[in-house]
Design a protein around this nucleic acid. Structure first.
Lengths: 304, 304
DNA sequence: CGTCGAAATGTAGAAATTCTACATATCGTT
DNA sequence: AACGATATGTAGAATTTCTACATTTCGACG
């Protein structure tokens, strides 16, 4: 093999896989795994001999280890480790426990969040988002709804769209949400948020909005109950094997989706949208103190 | 040099740097830069000869190129590229414009978000967070405040802490926030959120809370006006060179900080905290529909 | 309890890749 | 047009990775 070819699918989850496989590994492999998991950054700088020595193992065994995890060779393995390290999460895969110090917790939480966003980015249903943007841009009125933690997403969306001059309505109470849903017309849009897609109130509101003829957009988990009551589904599926992180990261992903929607709507609106943003920005600035930092002022979407 | 040593600081912004430097590069270097920027993924798989050939350049020139960007050699350069690729954003650095299609926008927004979280993770003031956790865990009452977009952070924090059994108070109106701040005592904690740290209402509320003797914690930009009215500052500084993304990503970072705080507080509380979470989880479940997906139930913090 | 076979590991040297020393070319300046 | 400085190329040395084969370890079974 003179030209590294092959499948060569990069392994962003390499460290996670090593950690997961660790228990069933032979003595030498387990040692090598330990070295990699303990100091992945160092491994990316090592040469084969250093690596094998660190685990008190022979060079061929080290190479076998790399191949065992589907890497071309040691150099390829180092690249895989380097990447997995950057992504962060897969490797911290372990749940947070009382034994973790603050630093470990921070690493896990932020790492999980960053990784989720990356994953979501690569699995977004852009066609659905495109349709959603069109619907939002043409809507006469937009009702936003969500319950529990998802109400945060609704509130955030409300602020974002409001600043764009999109006529939004937001009720935090689920009764009011339902009542508002009934008054919608075919010219209106309702946008619902739910991390699980299984919250009764949210599903009910979506159903009512749909019966009223409005275009119902939902940001939620694929194939959940809520998706069945929607015209446009923007699926946001986070990893389900990370129990603690799931709700945190899902929420961040929802907010990122809102950013994407509002940005796309703003650009769709062209100069008019840009002007609108400008006006809101100016209005907000009045609330500011003298500020030493001009960059605060440069936002295109708003600040607080 | 037999053992790769040296500064060896990894370059997560490698691709961004190459792109930025591109205009001032020599013919050969520019060719090499083009190859890297066009197909970074492929470069990580190449060997030196392939790389230099692709740019129609000699091998030593390729090595010089790697060293020019502070990499030990070609293998080190490949690792740098692999990492920069994973991070994603710095490399797409460019702002969003009308010319971007949805896919490009999604890549930029999510990429910027993931990158920011990673950066924040590495620059968190853990000591400050530690003190904040202690203060929160011991507080008799906690007032949360924020204005504008930052109110979303306050709302989110309220939900999180509430579920932990931490006695929180949240007012969305700035008048009410100030009134509540005046009633605080030395046994209480006030937590303020502001992306810029320059919002008058928020700063005023923090000052009042402090005059009342409460411990004031703020999550905001370093050295901003708000920090001067606080006992504990949790700085969240996002890149200021990405105007459009800044407010979006700052918000996500604030929410991630809330996740970290609430998780740490929950663990600090020990079994009692865990039980509390369990109880809230059960209460929330009642609002659910029949769900095909058991993993929804596994959250440790709550869902919506 | 020993023998066999399979799996795991180590040894030593071949193969591939990277890197260096030196030569040549190119470009801007005077 | 000659000079120095910078940029690039050539060829082979140095380093690193990898392979073929030998040895050990361990479990199953007689």
């Amino acid at each position: 093999m003179t030209q590294s070819s092959g499948p060569a699918v990069r392994q962003p989850a390499l460290l996670a896989r090593i950690r997961a496989a660790q228990p069933g590994l032979s003595r030498s492999f387990r040692e090598l795994a330990r070295v990699v998991l303990e100091r992945p950054e160092a491994v990316t700088r090592m040469r084969l001999a250093t690596f094998s020595d660190a685990a008190q193992v022979s060079q061929p065994t080290a190479i076998r280890f790399c191949r065992h995890f589907d890497c071309e060779g040691f150099p390829g393995f180092k690249i895989g480790v380097a990447q997995a390290m950057m992504i962060g999460l897969p490797y911290v895969h372990s749940e947070i426990g009382p034994a973790d110090d603050l630093s470990a917790m921070a690493g896990k939480i932020f790492g999980a969040a960053a990784d989720t966003l990356r994953t979501i980015r690569d699995s977004l249903d852009l066609a659905a988002i495109e349709r959603a943007v069109t619907a939002i841009a043409q809507a006469r009125r937009i009702e936003l709804f969500g319950s529990g933690l998802s109400s945060v997403a609704a509130i955030d969306a409300n602020q974002k769209f409001m600043r764009l001059g999109v006529p939004t309505v937001l009720h935090l109470d689920s009764h009011l949400q339902r009542m508002a849903a009934v008054t919608l017309t075919a010219a209106d849009v309702a946008i619902g948020f739910s991390y699980t897609g299984q919250i009764r109130d949210v599903v009910r509101t979506a159903e009512l909005a749909r019966e009223s003829g409005a275009t119902v957009i939902v940001v939620t988990r694929s194939r959940s109950a809520l998706t069945r009551a929607a015209d446009i589904v923007i699926p946001v599926d986070t990893r389900e094997d990370t129990f603690i992180y799931a709700p945190m990261t899902t929420r961040l992903a929802h907010l990122a989706v809102i950013d994407l929607l509002s940005t796309a709507v703003a650009l769709r609106a062209g100069p008019k949208g840009a002007m609108m943003i400008q006006r809101v920005k100016t209005a907000v600035r009045d609330e500011w103190l003298a500020h030493e930092d001009a960059s605060d002022d440069a936002s295109g979407v708003g600040q607080g």
